[in-house]
Design a protein around this nucleic acid. Sequence first.
DNA 1: ACGCGCTGTGCACGTTTGTGCAATGCAGTT
DNA 2: AACTGCATTGCACAAACGTGCACAGCGCGT
Lengths: 333, 333
Amino acid sequence: MMTIEDGWTDGAGGVDRTPGNRSRDALRAAQMYYLQDLTMNAIARELRTSRSTVSRLLSMARETGLVQIQVNNPSDRAPALEQQISRRFGVEAHVVPVADSVNDSEVLDRVAIQAARTIGPLVDSNAIVGVAWGSTLSAVSHHLTRKQTHDSTIVQLNGAGNTQTTGITYASEILRRFGQAYGARVEQFPVPAFFDHAATKTAMWEERSVRRILDLQRRMTMAIFGVGSIGAGIPSHVYSGGYLDREDLETLETDEVVGDVATMFFRADGTHRDIVLNTRSTGPELDQLCTVRRRICVVSGESKINGLRGALAAGLATDLILDEGSARRLVHS
Amino acid sequence: MMTIEDGWTDGAGGVDRTPGNRSRDALRAAQMYYLQDLTMNAIARELRTSRSTVSRLLSMARETGLVQIQVNNPSDRAPALEQQISRRFGVEAHVVPVADSVNDSEVLDRVAIQAARTIGPLVDSNAIVGVAWGSTLSAVSHHLTRKQTHDSTIVQLNGAGNTQTTGITYASEILRRFGQAYGARVEQFPVPAFFDHAATKTAMWEERSVRRILDLQRRMTMAIFGVGSIGAGIPSHVYSGGYLDREDLETLETDEVVGDVATMFFRADGTHRDIVLNTRSTGPELDQLCTVRRRICVVSGESKINGLRGALAAGLATDLILDEGSARRLVHS
DNA sequence: ACGCGCTGTGCACGTTTGTGCAATGCAGTT
DNA sequence: AACTGCATTGCACAAACGTGCACAGCGCGT
């Protein structure tokens, strides 16, 4: 007979309800399904359980990152669009195929899913990942697949408070999801998105609690953000959500701002000197952002194209994930 | 309207029968299926084709290595069996889960499939992969998944001729399949498995045509082999296939041989000095084999356990892929 | 022009897979 | 012991999927 210790690598012996079985069975099932091409029925027989349980074990295996599915386009024959974008803008492009017939919210959803799956493999142990907030990142955060890492940290890139709410629940939900997916510590940045007075920012930036976050940001190994865009149809969250008053919006216009990344603004040519609002923004200095090894920009929807152009001109991203429609718009002009 | 040039990254425009579409559609389909979780029906609509075609595109994407599915067991909580084997024998173990109720030939098949999928990701560009022959490798070769590589070479580890046939079709089929899967050059080793006289081997080993192969073997980055085993129930191919005569088998017994790798023999303790048959064998010197960075041993069936123990004692493998039954037998000693 | 073989397509069918639901088991509480 | 709340299971049904088959388009040789 087998002892319990033996039993725990064993699916064929007697039925064994030791706790922790589930994840072991999930691994066995995943191997049999994905590596041996058995049907769920056959697996159920070997595991002495029902087919439906196997189905559930497999979804669990996928969700917890036990199974990783990646689609590589052998770079030698990558789709033309991706190559063109790479050449022209010096970023690694991931174009999300989407027929132009689908509506904007579905495009966002699908870009978000694919972005989440693309980001997954890039998160290593000991990583310090900066994460912005906004509708794009919120969508992405809903689709992250888990991956076990050690000692990684998710750090908030910019404050999220505004004049109406502290914005904390919204932003912190995003962060929390990232942290949970990668088993990482989460470091929130409990400041408003914009200070009313630049002097307050200067003062706060001397506080040790704040410096701790800024220090983490300086040591980021990866940053993930969307872009905000001015000018085109729908304004982003930042431009309509109560973060900026009429006067602020006017100064943006005067400064010829076309968009922002993590509430730091820039112009169409990528410059950001002397944009007054940036002195009150809590986002990371763009020059400093550019020193981060991997900077992933997620964009969905053609309305963001102006902001995106500026961000690319500023060299803010090393990787760009965007829907096919926007990609085409980007290169065709 | 779109021009044809636009059309070729486009699935939504008019129906477009440009050649090469298939692999592009396969990529699009794979992204939509595996990264965006659409159903095949939805994909068919966007690609303007039928669901069945999408199904076929997806199988193509999997077969050609466009999609790679890997199952990782986060090493911190790897199954106990694998950890035990790793510790005791100093190899990375991949245990293939198989209920003990399934018959030997199915076990072989399933080990082969999983081995093929495990090997795939390890083959890089510029690799020189040594491949042995035998029933195990034959089974593996049938299940390799394609993967695009540049300038890699598959080299035969040991001659395959015997007194009855040249053995070439059998061995070369295996090699050919490896070559095709990885887009690699194939270098056969057109010599018998064993020379009748050691002197012939010495002479042949000076021939430039042979030296070219030996040189490749010296520069191998990876070797893949099974084990032969003496003593247990069913003897391996080598021991029964007309490669050795009665006298040879007697000398093996005298020399206390327990098994072989690529027709080079060894004893239970892993030693191989003064085994006379090795002087006539065309397999690689075992000491030299041990200098190869990655040495993958595939074993299926408990009858091979004696040979396997010897091979492990000799330190011939860095990676071991074997079925669960054998694995258990191995650690329970 | 015609026929031939080849490749790729959609249909139809049987198989495989996902999931709402009710039943069961188990732990903690009254 | 009885009760309650939560997690897990198998069932049954519907959705999604794979594949043999017949047919259409195309290139090629006669």
